[in-house]
Design a protein around this nucleic acid. Structure first.
Length: 104
DNA sequence: GTGATGACGGAAA
DNA sequence: CTTTCCGCCATCA
C-alpha cells in the first residue's frame, strides 16, 4: 500500500503519528536497531523530527539509517556498542542487528 | 500564504 | 563506491 493508504489506515493527526512513532521506538529491544523507514515508511523524516523533540527516555540510539550509518555519530555509536550491536567500522551490520517488520 | 530545512529513503546515473 | 533528484511531513522564517 502507498503512503496515502497508510495514512488513512493509521489514524493520522500530528499527535497520533508522533505517539505511534514513539511507541515503536520504545519497542525496539536492546541489542537491535530499526531504520527510520521501518518505523514510518510514509514519512521517514518525520521520525527524525519526532526523535529530535522527544523525551530522552526513548532509546533513540536504536534508530539508524537504512544503510546502517549513524545519524548521531560517536555518541550513538558508543551506546550501540555497549548493547552489543554488531558493527563494522562506523556502521551497523544491518544484516544481523536489524529487527524484522513487526505486525501491529 | 510561500519556501527552505531536516536525526531519511530509494532509484538513477 | 559517489552524487543527484524527488518524495515525505512538520516546523519555522
Amino acid at each position: 500500500m502507498d503512503r496515502q493508504e497508510v495514512a488513512h489506515v493509521t489514524t493520522d493527526s500530528p499527535s497520533a503519528r508522533a505517539a505511534r512513532i514513539l511507541a515503536r521506538v520504545r519497542a525496539i529491544p536492546e541489542g537491535f536497531v530499526r531504520t527510520y523507514g521501518d518505523i514510518h515508511p510514509a514519512a521517514p523524516r518525520l521520525v527524525g523530527h519526532v526523535l529530535a523533540t522527544a523525551p530522552d527516555d526513548v532509546p533513540w540510539h536504536r534508530v539508524v539509517r537504512a544503510d546502517g550509518t549513524l545519524p548521531m555519530g560517536p555518541l550513538q555509536r558508543e551506546r550501540l556498542w555497549r548493547e552489543g550491536v554488531p558493527m563494522r567500522g562506523d556502521r551497523v551490520e544491518m544484516r544481523l542487528a536489524r529487527l524484522p517488520e513487526v505486525a501491529s
